[in-house]
Design a binder for these strands. Structure first.
Lengths: 215, 215, 215, 215
DNA sequence: AATGAATGAGGGTTCATTCAT
DNA sequence: TATGAATGAACCCTCATTCAT
């Protein structure tokens, strides 16, 4: 294209199993979350990862196993982000608000997470049910919530008896839905659902959760 | 209908035509929501509808168009159910609680609705964006909510300034998420998420919404 | 090639399920016996049968089932040939000699029969073991042999106690081996194993069998 | 062998080299005879031989060459067994009977021999035809037979004019067929074809051959 | 001498779609 | 109106073979 070349410069074969593995994994995560399980193409994963198809089969076995690995990777990556969230020493209501904002922001920045969860639920959870170690993958977040609830209760600001997991479900619900369903909502309700809307939605959601918790 | 008709009418005309069409539609709705777009098989639709494949192509054109029709049908059916919801004359808070309970129940009873919405959002809303008449398909519900909010405000029980669409998003979020994500939540958090849990979840969600609205 | 053609004249789609089925079967028989099971290509079967690959899958299911059908067809065809063999009213020794000559000739004329049997035995008989109705496929021949043996015995020419199946094994052995192993024998023993040799071999084999039977 | 050698020797030189080579060869023999040429997997050969795949390519070149080496090895091994057969000083008829029994036993004990011959004949003898030294590989056995025939003739027990190679073909036929075709015969004729049957079959085959030879 | 890493080429199978009646 | 018969185009996966150390 840019001039005659005596030899086609092929990209040099990478000789690094670990690097290959992880680039395949990332490519798979993208492919499965943008295309769904059945829509995903192993060819696309290979191309995106810059490896040949057989290598994928060598490392992961088959499409199903590759998908399972990508799904686990999605959880691992999202958990990694959540670990960076620091809620220590904040006023409980503030901590809750920050948690809500963070959650929505986190989902927004990692859209493949929502997509691959939708994909997995569309599949009836067939894969995650068989996945060793799926449980507990989010325990850190629950611990953080529990601590906030206890602190709020201790300060007499929050009412007792709220289960941290249930509360997490509420928070996640409010952050997940408008992102997960952004396209249908836009069409049906003709709202922009742009960044500004989402920001204010996060604030309102924070308010809602805090009011629900208040003694 | 039963006599010969002058050419040019392309749409099927037999008495059974309408029945065939609607059984195809129902079968497509089931197939697409249980299998996703790429996982859906036109063969399965034909088998479930009890017709031949060419008939489907005759009526709908191609898989994409069939899917679009199924998606619209999903909205039509769900809207039909919502019309039966009567919130007139109730105390505003009660009306809200009833609306929340109804919404969750409605989603629970029509699981293909959530599934096909997830499918469509996974596809980036490509289909619904092109669909004429998608907008306003849920205007009834929004009107009902608006009326409740106004009544609550009039009675001094609800604070003003709450947008009915935004409120619907909140309600839908709380009802949608635990159903949409039931499989992954079960695996990760090891909660049963059974009917009893969902019932109590609906009550709590009602409380949360009402508190959020209270003046 | 031969001139410009306004439209590629495609071979017209045959609209005859039974004809398609049987041409696939014949093509499969040829392919499997010349290439072995693993060497056989469904593509080749399709090309030879003049149909598309999916049609094969439509009719037979998969390669394994196609192979099973071809194997059964091999037996059916060979049995058809054997039915035409008339040994009635001959002198017992003559009948035996004729049977031997016929058997070798029959194998020689239907080389795919030996080849597909070799293929199946190489596979450990996995397919034929599961085949319904494989037994008895050759009962006609055994009956004929039994009758000859009884007649020979009655005439005091043959000794009693010879099992017709065992005798068939001997006859088949002598006819099968030099054809089945023709290539290795030619190379190792450097004999031509041409038609003349085979003809005289058949005569000698007949002699051997008759001597074995004589009282 | 043990000292350094000036370049150009392409064959591996380490002490283990010969061991690797022969374990590959044995593994290949097993793989090719149990799976056929196209069914054989170089991976399996490597695994069974306990070496890496590139080593096989280093030693043998490609799959075809490996197969040729395995085929030759099959003959070499079987010839080695036949050398141990001692027929000296026996009564000619007894020698023949012993030879028949031995042949069947030899085939039975080395089933890969029959299998790889079948494989090669299925392939049309493409490999053995190109193989140098295939001829004469069985000359020892022929010599033994010739000596028996001469002795029998000398004693007036056997008729003259029997070709030792032709006789070998008869003997081999009777021993080869029921083993080579054991699976299809079992299914079609529903005989056990167990060890007892084979033993008595060998005896009967001996009788048949002896009668054929008798003056 | 030996091998872990990697791939081009192709095979079996599926599926949306059309043909011809 | 309705469908049995048929296929082009992919897709998942495998395998003989090579690269680079």
């Amino acid at each position: 294209m840019t001039g005659p070349q005596p030899k086609k410069t092929r990209a040099p074969r990478r000789r690094n199993a670990e690097a290959s593995r992880s680039s395949i994994l990332q490519a798979a995560l993208v492919e499965f979350s943008t295309q769904g399980y059945d829509g995903a193409r192993v060819d696309n994963v290979a191309a995106r990862a810059g490896v040949s198809k057989p290598l994928i089969y060598d490392y992961f076995g088959d499409k199903e196993a590759l998908y399972a690995a990508a799904l686990l990777e999605a959880y691992v990556q999202i958990r990694g982000g959540e670990k960076k969230l620091n809620l220590e020493g904040l006023d409980p209501a503030e901590a809750i608000r920050k948690l809500v904002t963070f959650t929505l922001e986190h989902f927004r920045r990692n859209p493949w997470f929502i997509s691959i969860l939708n994909t997995e639920n569309l599949r009836g959870g067939a894969t995650i049910r068989e996945m060793h170690g799926a449980a507990g993958v989010q325990s850190d977040l629950v611990k953080k919530i529990r601590r906030i609830l206890e602190e709020g209760e201790r300060q007499g600001k929050f009412r007792p008896g709220v289960d941290p997991v249930d509360l997490y479900f509420f928070i996640a619900s409010l952050c997940y839905f408008p992102l997960s369903n952004i396209h249908t909502l836009r069409s049906v309700f003709q709202r922009p659902l742009d960044d500004a809307w989402l920001d204010s939605h996060a604030v309102e959601a924070g308010t809602m959760i805090v009011r629900y918790l208040e003694a």
